[in-house]
Amino acid sequence: MQGEVGTYANARPVILRNAVFIGLAVSVYGVSFGAMGVTAGLSVLQTSVLSLVMFTGASQLAFVGVIAAGGAPATAIATALLLGVRNAMYAVRMSTLLRVRHGWRLLAAQLTIDESTALSIAQDESIEDGRASRLGFWAGGVSVFALWNLATVIGALGAQAIGDPKAFGLDTAIVAGLAGLLWPRLRDRESWTVAAGSLALALIMVPFTPAGVPVLSCALIAFGVATTTLRRHPEVRD
Protein backbone atom coordinates (compact mmCIF):
# COMPACT_ATOMS: atom_id res chain seq x y z
CA MET A 1 0.00 0.00 0.00
CA GLN A 2 3.05 2.25 0.37
CA GLY A 3 4.04 2.65 -3.28
CA GLU A 4 7.38 1.38 -4.55
CA VAL A 5 9.62 3.73 -2.62
CA GLY A 6 8.75 4.75 0.92
CA THR A 7 8.52 8.49 0.35
CA TYR A 8 5.79 10.87 1.44
CA ALA A 9 5.12 11.91 -2.17
CA ASN A 10 4.46 8.28 -3.10
CA ALA A 11 2.42 7.50 -0.01
CA ARG A 12 0.18 10.58 -0.11
CA PRO A 13 -2.18 9.71 -3.02
CA VAL A 14 -2.55 6.14 -1.76
CA ILE A 15 -3.46 7.35 1.73
CA LEU A 16 -5.99 9.85 0.40
CA ARG A 17 -7.60 7.26 -1.86
CA ASN A 18 -7.84 4.74 1.00
CA ALA A 19 -9.35 7.43 3.23
CA VAL A 20 -12.16 7.94 0.71
CA PHE A 21 -12.69 4.16 0.40
CA ILE A 22 -12.95 3.77 4.17
CA GLY A 23 -15.41 6.68 4.33
CA LEU A 24 -17.58 5.10 1.64
CA ALA A 25 -17.45 1.71 3.38
CA VAL A 26 -18.60 3.08 6.75
CA SER A 27 -21.31 5.20 5.15
CA VAL A 28 -23.23 1.94 4.54
CA TYR A 29 -23.24 1.47 8.32
CA GLY A 30 -24.13 5.15 8.68
CA VAL A 31 -27.33 4.69 6.67
CA SER A 32 -28.23 1.70 8.89
CA PHE A 33 -27.51 3.74 12.01
CA GLY A 34 -29.66 6.65 10.81
CA ALA A 35 -32.56 4.28 10.11
CA MET A 36 -32.00 2.57 13.44
CA GLY A 37 -32.11 5.84 15.39
CA VAL A 38 -35.48 6.84 13.97
CA THR A 39 -36.84 3.28 14.33
CA ALA A 40 -35.78 3.41 18.01
CA GLY A 41 -37.93 6.52 18.46
CA LEU A 42 -35.33 9.29 18.22
CA SER A 43 -35.90 12.32 15.99
CA VAL A 44 -33.82 12.88 12.85
CA LEU A 45 -32.02 15.71 14.67
CA GLN A 46 -31.26 13.60 17.77
CA THR A 47 -29.94 10.80 15.57
CA SER A 48 -27.72 13.32 13.74
CA VAL A 49 -26.41 14.78 17.01
CA LEU A 50 -25.25 11.30 18.01
CA SER A 51 -23.27 11.03 14.76
CA LEU A 52 -21.86 14.57 15.08
CA VAL A 53 -20.93 14.58 18.78
CA MET A 54 -20.67 10.97 19.94
CA PHE A 55 -19.13 9.94 16.58
CA THR A 56 -18.12 6.40 17.41
CA GLY A 57 -20.16 3.83 15.51
CA ALA A 58 -20.37 0.89 17.90
CA SER A 59 -21.35 3.13 20.85
CA GLN A 60 -23.98 4.89 18.74
CA LEU A 61 -25.55 1.65 17.52
CA ALA A 62 -25.47 0.23 21.04
CA PHE A 63 -27.03 3.38 22.51
CA VAL A 64 -30.02 3.34 20.16
CA GLY A 65 -30.19 -0.47 20.40
CA VAL A 66 -30.68 -0.32 24.17
CA ILE A 67 -33.18 2.55 23.80
CA ALA A 68 -35.06 0.55 21.13
CA ALA A 69 -35.25 -2.43 23.49
CA GLY A 70 -36.90 -0.15 26.08
CA GLY A 71 -33.82 0.13 28.28
CA ALA A 72 -33.36 2.93 30.82
CA PRO A 73 -31.32 5.91 29.53
CA ALA A 74 -28.66 5.30 32.21
CA THR A 75 -27.99 1.78 30.96
CA ALA A 76 -27.85 3.04 27.35
CA ILE A 77 -25.29 5.69 28.38
CA ALA A 78 -23.21 3.17 30.36
CA THR A 79 -23.20 0.70 27.45
CA ALA A 80 -22.07 3.41 25.00
CA LEU A 81 -19.26 4.48 27.36
CA LEU A 82 -17.97 0.94 27.93
CA LEU A 83 -17.88 0.39 24.16
CA GLY A 84 -15.92 3.64 23.79
CA VAL A 85 -13.09 2.70 26.17
CA ARG A 86 -11.03 1.52 23.19
CA ASN A 87 -11.09 5.06 21.75
CA ALA A 88 -9.16 6.24 24.80
CA MET A 89 -6.58 3.55 24.03
CA TYR A 90 -6.31 4.77 20.44
CA ALA A 91 -5.95 8.33 21.74
CA VAL A 92 -2.95 7.34 23.86
CA ARG A 93 -1.27 5.94 20.75
CA MET A 94 -2.22 8.91 18.58
CA SER A 95 -1.19 11.58 21.08
CA THR A 96 2.49 10.62 20.78
CA LEU A 97 2.22 10.38 16.99
CA LEU A 98 0.22 13.51 16.18
CA ARG A 99 1.99 15.92 18.57
CA VAL A 100 -1.05 18.22 18.57
CA ARG A 101 -1.71 21.06 20.99
CA HIS A 102 -4.66 23.11 22.23
CA GLY A 103 -7.53 23.40 19.73
CA TRP A 104 -6.04 20.80 17.40
CA ARG A 105 -6.02 18.34 20.28
CA LEU A 106 -9.76 18.90 20.83
CA LEU A 107 -10.33 18.23 17.12
CA ALA A 108 -8.04 15.20 17.05
CA ALA A 109 -9.90 13.71 20.02
CA GLN A 110 -13.19 13.86 18.13
CA LEU A 111 -11.68 12.08 15.10
CA THR A 112 -10.06 9.33 17.21
CA ILE A 113 -11.99 6.21 16.14
CA ASP A 114 -11.32 2.72 14.74
CA GLU A 115 -10.91 3.82 11.12
CA SER A 116 -8.65 6.88 11.54
CA THR A 117 -6.40 4.95 13.94
CA ALA A 118 -6.24 1.97 11.58
CA LEU A 119 -5.34 4.12 8.56
CA SER A 120 -2.64 5.87 10.60
CA ILE A 121 -1.08 2.70 12.01
CA ALA A 122 -1.06 1.12 8.52
CA GLN A 123 1.48 3.74 7.34
CA ASP A 124 5.26 3.53 7.54
CA GLU A 125 6.14 5.62 10.58
CA SER A 126 9.69 6.21 9.35
CA ILE A 127 8.46 8.36 6.43
CA GLU A 128 9.43 11.94 7.25
CA ASP A 129 9.26 11.37 10.99
CA GLY A 130 5.66 10.09 11.00
CA ARG A 131 4.23 12.50 8.42
CA ALA A 132 2.47 9.70 6.47
CA SER A 133 1.04 8.29 9.72
CA ARG A 134 -0.34 11.72 10.63
CA LEU A 135 -1.88 12.16 7.17
CA GLY A 136 -3.50 8.72 7.55
CA PHE A 137 -5.15 9.80 10.78
CA TRP A 138 -6.43 13.17 9.57
CA ALA A 139 -7.53 12.01 6.11
CA GLY A 140 -9.26 8.92 7.51
CA GLY A 141 -10.91 10.90 10.31
CA VAL A 142 -12.19 13.74 8.12
CA SER A 143 -13.41 11.39 5.38
CA VAL A 144 -15.29 9.13 7.81
CA PHE A 145 -16.72 12.10 9.75
CA ALA A 146 -18.11 13.73 6.59
CA LEU A 147 -19.54 10.59 4.99
CA TRP A 148 -20.80 9.05 8.26
CA ASN A 149 -22.80 12.16 9.09
CA LEU A 150 -24.18 12.50 5.57
CA ALA A 151 -25.17 8.81 5.59
CA THR A 152 -26.84 9.19 9.00
CA VAL A 153 -29.14 11.94 7.70
CA ILE A 154 -30.02 9.89 4.60
CA GLY A 155 -30.82 6.80 6.69
CA ALA A 156 -32.83 8.76 9.26
CA LEU A 157 -34.91 10.56 6.62
CA GLY A 158 -35.42 7.30 4.73
CA ALA A 159 -36.71 5.46 7.82
CA GLN A 160 -38.98 8.40 8.63
CA ALA A 161 -40.47 8.18 5.13
CA ILE A 162 -41.04 4.40 5.37
CA GLY A 163 -43.16 4.63 8.52
CA ASP A 164 -43.84 1.11 9.84
CA PRO A 165 -40.38 -0.44 10.20
CA LYS A 166 -41.64 -3.97 10.89
CA ALA A 167 -43.33 -4.22 7.48
CA PHE A 168 -39.93 -4.19 5.74
CA GLY A 169 -38.19 -6.30 8.36
CA LEU A 170 -36.25 -3.20 9.47
CA ASP A 171 -36.14 -4.54 13.03
CA THR A 172 -33.93 -7.29 11.63
CA ALA A 173 -31.80 -4.69 9.80
CA ILE A 174 -30.86 -3.36 13.26
CA VAL A 175 -29.83 -6.79 14.54
CA ALA A 176 -28.01 -7.59 11.30
CA GLY A 177 -26.16 -4.24 11.46
CA LEU A 178 -25.02 -4.96 15.02
CA ALA A 179 -24.02 -8.50 14.03
CA GLY A 180 -21.97 -6.93 11.22
CA LEU A 181 -20.01 -4.95 13.83
CA LEU A 182 -19.54 -8.05 15.99
CA TRP A 183 -18.47 -10.55 13.33
CA PRO A 184 -15.00 -9.15 12.46
CA ARG A 185 -14.17 -8.99 16.19
CA LEU A 186 -14.64 -12.76 16.59
CA ARG A 187 -11.04 -13.57 15.72
CA ASP A 188 -9.75 -16.10 18.22
CA ARG A 189 -10.71 -18.57 20.90
CA GLU A 190 -10.82 -15.88 23.56
CA SER A 191 -13.26 -13.64 21.68
CA TRP A 192 -15.51 -16.64 20.89
CA THR A 193 -15.46 -17.53 24.60
CA VAL A 194 -16.55 -13.99 25.47
CA ALA A 195 -19.32 -14.12 22.84
CA ALA A 196 -20.62 -17.51 24.04
CA GLY A 197 -20.61 -16.37 27.67
CA SER A 198 -22.34 -13.09 26.78
CA LEU A 199 -25.01 -14.88 24.74
CA ALA A 200 -25.80 -17.19 27.66
CA LEU A 201 -25.77 -14.42 30.27
CA ALA A 202 -28.02 -12.12 28.20
CA LEU A 203 -30.57 -14.93 27.72
CA ILE A 204 -30.57 -15.72 31.43
CA MET A 205 -30.90 -12.06 32.45
CA VAL A 206 -33.74 -10.98 30.09
CA PRO A 207 -36.65 -12.42 32.11
CA PHE A 208 -35.33 -11.19 35.47
CA THR A 209 -33.93 -7.71 34.89
CA PRO A 210 -35.18 -4.49 33.26
CA ALA A 211 -34.29 -3.92 29.59
CA GLY A 212 -30.72 -2.72 29.10
CA VAL A 213 -29.35 -4.55 32.14
CA PRO A 214 -28.85 -7.88 30.31
CA VAL A 215 -26.62 -6.11 27.76
CA LEU A 216 -24.69 -4.13 30.36
CA SER A 217 -24.10 -7.24 32.49
CA CYS A 218 -22.19 -8.80 29.56
CA ALA A 219 -19.33 -6.40 30.38
CA LEU A 220 -18.65 -8.70 33.36
CA ILE A 221 -17.91 -11.54 30.91
CA ALA A 222 -15.27 -9.37 29.20
CA PHE A 223 -13.66 -8.53 32.56
CA GLY A 224 -13.84 -12.16 33.70
CA VAL A 225 -12.32 -13.65 30.57
CA ALA A 226 -9.60 -10.95 30.40
CA THR A 227 -8.68 -11.59 34.03
CA THR A 228 -8.49 -15.35 33.47
CA THR A 229 -6.30 -14.93 30.38
CA LEU A 230 -3.90 -12.57 32.15
CA ARG A 231 -3.66 -14.96 35.10
CA ARG A 232 -2.92 -17.95 32.86
CA HIS A 233 -0.42 -16.00 30.76
CA PRO A 234 1.42 -13.74 33.19
CA GLU A 235 3.94 -12.87 30.46
CA VAL A 236 1.36 -10.52 28.88
CA ARG A 237 0.80 -8.75 32.19
CA ASP A 238 2.31 -5.29 32.75
Binding site: L83, L182, R185, E190, A195, S198, A222
Partner: peptide, 8 residues
Amino acid sequence: LLPVALLT
Protein backbone atom coordinates in the same frame (compact mmCIF):
# COMPACT_ATOMS: atom_id res chain seq x y z
CA LEU B 1 -13.00 -7.64 24.65
CA LEU B 2 -15.72 -5.20 25.80
CA PRO B 3 -17.13 -4.64 22.27
CA VAL B 4 -17.36 -8.42 21.74
CA ALA B 5 -19.28 -8.88 25.01
CA LEU B 6 -21.62 -5.89 24.67
CA LEU B 7 -22.35 -6.35 20.96
CA THR B 8 -23.14 -10.04 21.56
